[in-house]
Design a protein around this nucleic acid. Structure first.
Lengths: 126, 126
DNA sequence: CAAAATAGTTACCTGTATGTAAGTAACTAA
DNA sequence: TTAGTTACTTACATACAGGTAACTATTTTG
């Protein structure tokens, strides 16, 4: 972010930094893609869907996604309370790009892991 | 990564975790996109292009990208030494997806920032 | 002899993102 | 009165990604 509009940084560089700043954390993208996949979800449903996220990080990440207008939060003032989270249009507009990346991963991650092994051998045994 | 092939996790979820594990760091994507943009580059050229990366993180990130077969490293044994980094085909195949994300950022980041402000007001004075 | 240049390596330190565990409100059911 | 439910909040702890700065090898130049 810092060196945007300074010497070397073009649009692309700057946009990528924004993406990384906003979505480089551990859970945002995963929550967006989960909501995109299953539609509306309650807090505990999301918690179970994702499986290994802590309550705290789920709350924190949902809040920041809501603040940025990527998801909407609807509270039904019942007892016990019910809250439903859903992607907004803005959030949904990000989905296809995430899915493209996931597709790329499916297609190429095996190759990457093999390269990594080869490299380890080259370095390890010269 | 942990809960892939456990209960709730489908392909998508799992692929996204792989992407985040591999490319969620601060510099990998930026280096790939820089190399994609300018082509072959030397160590110090990259350092200056990016501007605010430390020598250490440039070395570390270049090494791991090389290990995964995303970039190639060519050493010319001159004095002083010259080293050139370049995207491999595998690395190049990731470029369009990165650019799609960058484009999305250009188009929507302003809206996100506005939402964030609104939300801060709602919370702060609501 | 000293300085400069390239492409790093190494030791050390710190901030922050994340995790853990307990607490909260409000009500229901036994 | 005890436990259970939902959707959190809060306090506390920590690991690791990343930063800083010094050091390295090798040769040319002055």
């Amino acid at each position: 972010m810092k060196n945007c509009n300074e010497k070397k940084s073009e649009h692309l560089n700057c946009s990528i930094r924004q993406i990384l700043d906003r979505f480089g954390d551990k859970w945002s993208i995963l929550i967006i893609s989960t909501l995109g996949h299953v539609g509306k979800q309650r807090f505990n449903e999301l918690n179970q869907q994702i499986g290994d996220i802590s309550q705290k990080m789920l709350t924190v990440t949902l809040r920041s996604l809501e603040a940025d207008g990527l998801i909407s939060r609807t509270l039904y003032p019942e007892i016990p309370p019910r809250v439903e989270y859903e992607l907004t249009d803005l959030g949904r507009s990000l989905l296809p790009h995430i899915e493209q990346l996931a597709l790329w991963a499916e297609q190429h991650m095996e190759a990457i892991l093999k390269n990594r092994e080869k490299y380890a051998h080259r370095v390890g045994f010269g």
